[in-house]
Computed example of a mutant assay.
Amino acid sequence: MFKLALVDDHDIFLKGLQKILEYEDDLKVVHSFKSGQEILNNISDLDIDILVLDVQLPDIQPEELLQALRSKLPNLPILYLTLLRGTRFFHKLQKFNIQGYILKDSPTEELIKAIKIVANGATYFSEKVEIAGFEDEYKNTVIYADQKVNDILSPREIEVLKLVCQEYSSADIAAKLFLSVGTVDTHRKNILIKLGVNNTVGLVKYALKNNIIT
């Protein structure tokens, strides 16, 4: 059971979201706030697993609110909500440890999925976000942080990943590892799914970040 707090200044949206989440057995809304100041006034009483936060509140700038939240709750997973595509807010929010970013007009199923993913310690970014410089391999993907590579990938998958990053084709990898091309393709697909990336660029970035290749 994940405990949530919701923050939105639009009463209809706030109550509607609460009603929708009531039908989820593993989600429970324990707090709802209509302003940034309201959540800051109650921050010491928060015992939640995720905060679903509207980035545009009339009483406080998003950077100011997030700085205050992060000073008290540095590790709290936050899923950011917005109405705007291509908003400049995204890049400003990156420095405050973004775990999720989703548009308010997203399908209900996607929002629920995003909430559960972020509450589980992963990140989720909606594919509808249209922001220059926001790379495609991170859209609509799940990226788990603070997990050792060996906990995510098998030894064989790590071998395949290294060779993929060295620009070997599936046929070349199959020959090197004495596998069939079909088996190699299956490994590649599973690696993409496990790491939550969509293409080879994402694999290379992951491998570099985790010192799988240098």
Rank of each mutant, 00 (worst) to 15 (best):
I212F: 09
Y144L: 14
T141G: 15
T183S: 15
R156M: 08
I173K: 07
A132H: 09
Y80S: 08
D185L: 00
K19R: 07
L93N: 12
G86H: 07
L163Q: 11
I213M: 03
V149F: 11
I78T: 04
E135W: 06
L51G: 01
T141E: 15
V149I: 15
N150Y: 00
D45Y: 06
I212V: 12
T200F: 11
I43R: 01
K189R: 14
S106R: 07
E22I: 01
R85D: 10
I112M: 02
E159G: 14
K162L: 06
K113H: 13
G121P: 02
I143A: 07
V149Y: 12
D136Y: 04
L27M: 04
Q37F: 10
Y80D: 07
F33C: 00
T87H: 05
K139R: 11
Y124G: 03
A174D: 06
I173L: 07
I143G: 04
A5I: 04
P107Y: 06
N42K: 12
L73W: 03
L111W: 14
Y101V: 07
G182S: 12
G202Y: 12
H31V: 01
L51Q: 00
G86Y: 06
K34Y: 13
D9L: 00
L208T: 06
F13R: 13
I158A: 01
N42R: 10
L4S: 06
V29P: 05
D11P: 03
I50R: 07
R88H: 12
F90Q: 08
L192V: 04
I191L: 00
T108F: 05
V55M: 12
Q99W: 09
I60K: 06
S35I: 07
L57H: 02
D185G: 00
Y144F: 15
K34F: 11
V197L: 03
L84F: 14
P107T: 11
E127C: 10
R188P: 02
A145Y: 06
V52L: 04
L69S: 03
S126L: 07
L161P: 03
L153F: 05
K28I: 05
E159I: 13
S44F: 02
H187C: 13
Y168L: 15
V55D: 13
Q18P: 05
D172Y: 09
L163G: 09
V29M: 04
L14K: 10
A175I: 08
G202R: 14
S71W: 00
L6T: 07
E64K: 08
D54S: 05
K205A: 08
Y80R: 06
R156F: 02
A145D: 01
L65A: 02
L79C: 05
E64W: 00
L27C: 05
Y23H: 13
K28D: 06
V129I: 15
E109M: 06
K92A: 14
F89R: 03
K95I: 09
R70T: 01
K194G: 07
Q37R: 09
D49R: 00
S169F: 15
S44E: 14
S35Y: 05
L195G: 08
I112P: 02
M1Y: 11
A132S: 11
N190A: 09
L83G: 08
L203C: 05
D151A: 08
S71T: 03
E157L: 11
G202I: 14
E135G: 01
D151E: 12
L79Y: 09
L6E: 12
R85E: 13
T186R: 14
R156N: 08
D105N: 14
